[in-house]
């Protein structure tokens, strides 16, 4: 089970964002995607979920090339879940239950059971009837994660999952990622939080100017600084 891109090229309004990216996330691994602001992390994640079509190159999921017709996109998005950076952009329904059930309803599976299980996984059982607008930032983040988990994906893409979360929120996200890894789900996390990346990730991939600049299980302080990553993780913060 792998998700990969070969020679991926993408430009936004004539400005190159991805320049021949060969990205690979292997089955059951947690791949941390690091890089400066504007390095192309979110754009790469959107390619992996089919939200953006490459100008050139290809995306492969389970060795099958992604095509962009409706049926293939539906298959792709059922397999590859995407948790957005800002939960306010992701929550589409008034109540927690309706929002978490949104994906399963779209693909026609047992929405009630999936919703219940997903809310349990993120520790929000009993929140079904709560209005999304009245939740705290951390709770919204967990609801948006539950909305993706309810689709039972094989691959999970997180865009800045720890952004704006307190210690408890980060621990919940780490625990969920750990549990999903044990279930064999392949996870890609775009983050600026190097401490989180080192603690949770199996592989660190750094995007630099739209290209893969680094890929290894760990990274030194000097290399991290070279890539413009926050190095608090090495300084004992």
């Amino acid at each position: 089970m792998t998700i990969e891109t070969t020679d991926l090229e993408f430009a936004y309004e004539g400005e190159p964002v991805l320049r021949g990216v060969d990205f690979r996330a292997a089955g059951g691994e947690v791949t941390m995607l690091l890089g400066r602001n504007g390095a192309g992390k979110s754009t790469l994640l959107k390619h992996l979920n089919g939200l953006v079509e490459p100008d050139d190159g290809a995306v492969y999921v389970d060795d099958e090339r992604v095509t962009y017709d409706d049926a293939s996109l539906r298959d792709l998005r059922t397999k590859v879940g995407y948790v957005f950076q800002n939960p306010d952009d992701q929550l589409v329904a008034p109540t927690v239950e309706q929002d978490v059930a949104f994906g399963p309803e779209n693909v026609g599976v047992d929405a009630a059971r999936r919703t219940r299980e997903a809310l349990e996984t993120v520790g929000l059982s009993g929140f079904d009837d709560r209005l999304c607008a009245t939740l705290s930032g951390g709770e919204k983040k967990r609801v948006s994660l539950a909305g993706v988990l309810a689709m039972d994906p094989d691959y999970l893409l997180f865009d800045e999952p720890t952004l704006g979360l307190d210690g408890d929120g980060c621990s919940t996200i780490s625990a969920v990622i750990d549990a999903l890894r044990r279930e064999g789900i392949t996870i890609v996390v775009a983050t600026h939080d190097l401490g989180f990346a080192l603690a949770v990730g199996d592989v660190l991939t750094v995007l630099e100017d739209g290209e893969i600049g680094y890929r290894d299980a760990t990274i030194s302080r000097e290399r991290a600084a070279e890539f413009g990553l926050r190095t608090f993780a090495f300084d004992g913060y």
């Binding site: 996109l73 539906r74 998005r77 059922t78 929550l91 779209n106 909305g147 689709m151």
Partner: peptide, 16 residues
């Protein structure tokens, strides 16, 4: 809209 498409929205709003 992007978030909805990421969760297989195909033009028909599901209702619980």
């Amino acid at each position: 809209d992007e978030a909805m498409r990421a969760r297989c929205y195909d033009g028909r709003m599901p209702t619980v």
